[in-house]
Amino acid sequence: MSVTVRPVDPTADAALLHAWVTQPRAAFWGMSDHTVEEVALVYGWIRDQAHLAAYLLLVDHQPLGLLHTYDPELDEIGEWYDRASGDVGVHLFLADDPRRAGRTPEVLAAGLDFLAHLPGCRRLVFEPDARNAASVGLLERLGCTRGPLVELRTSIAEKPAQFFFMDRDRARQVARTLGTGGAS
């Protein structure tokens, strides 16, 4: 049993991603009204941007999570908090899939380890919708440092965003703990 990370293939993964992002629980992802074709276009656009990336988290070759990364120095979200050199912006989505049962710590460990080893990464930046209690709670349990709460308004999203930060060393430590079955 293993957890791996691979880049999203916008065409091949569009139907899967569409099934995830159009579920009611994914309302905060902001794509609930998208068609499969529109999801493919969004992920194609992400792939083509130098400062953005999208990755699938796979357990035994089954996709169970999604990571988006962005460079806050180039992305407009970076204008809403005190940016630092080496920041990597992160959006995380975990699939509501029975195959993830009991494996969530491993999925999170693989994702955090992957992110912490990105070239130049010094700190992870998360900005979930403050109304998304599940995401806020997860980031708190992972030991992220709470940052500012802002009324984020960008070309893509408008939301009350609660920023959280995790430095690279903490991300590696949490990944090791989660990967060995430690509590999240």
Rank of each mutant, 00 (worst) to 15 (best):
M1F: 09
S2C: 12
V5I: 15
A12D: 07
A12Y: 02
D13P: 09
A14L: 10
A15E: 14
A15R: 15
L17G: 11
H18R: 08
A19K: 05
W20G: 08
T22M: 01
T22A: 02
Q23L: 14
P24I: 09
P24A: 08
F28H: 15
W29T: 02
G30T: 02
G30M: 04
M31R: 13
M31S: 12
H34C: 12
H34K: 15
T35S: 15
V36R: 13
E37M: 08
E37R: 14
V39W: 01
A40M: 04
V42F: 08
G44D: 07
H51K: 07
L52G: 03
A54L: 14
L56F: 12
L57H: 04
Q62C: 12
L64T: 13
L64S: 11
G65C: 10
L67V: 06
L67Q: 06
T69A: 10
T69Q: 10
T69K: 09
L74P: 05
D75F: 00
G78P: 07
E79A: 13
D82M: 03
A84F: 01
D87C: 01
D87G: 01
V90I: 12
D97Y: 11
D97E: 15
D97Q: 12
D97I: 10
P98F: 04
R99V: 12
R100P: 10
A101W: 07
E106P: 08
L108H: 06
L108Y: 05
G111F: 00
D113Y: 02
A116R: 07
A116P: 03
A116V: 01
L118W: 02
L118F: 02
P119D: 15
P119Y: 04
V125E: 04
V125H: 06
F126G: 06
E127I: 00
P128D: 01
N132M: 10
A133H: 06
A133Q: 09
A134C: 09
V136T: 14
G137C: 13
G137Y: 05
L139K: 01
G143Q: 09
C144S: 06
T145R: 13
R146K: 14
R146S: 05
G147D: 02
E151R: 14
L152C: 07
R153F: 00
T154K: 04
T154S: 09
A157F: 11
E158P: 01
P160A: 08
F165Q: 04
F165H: 06
R168W: 00
R168N: 04
R168D: 02
D169M: 03
R170M: 10
R170D: 12
A171D: 04
R172F: 00
T180C: 10
A183F: 11
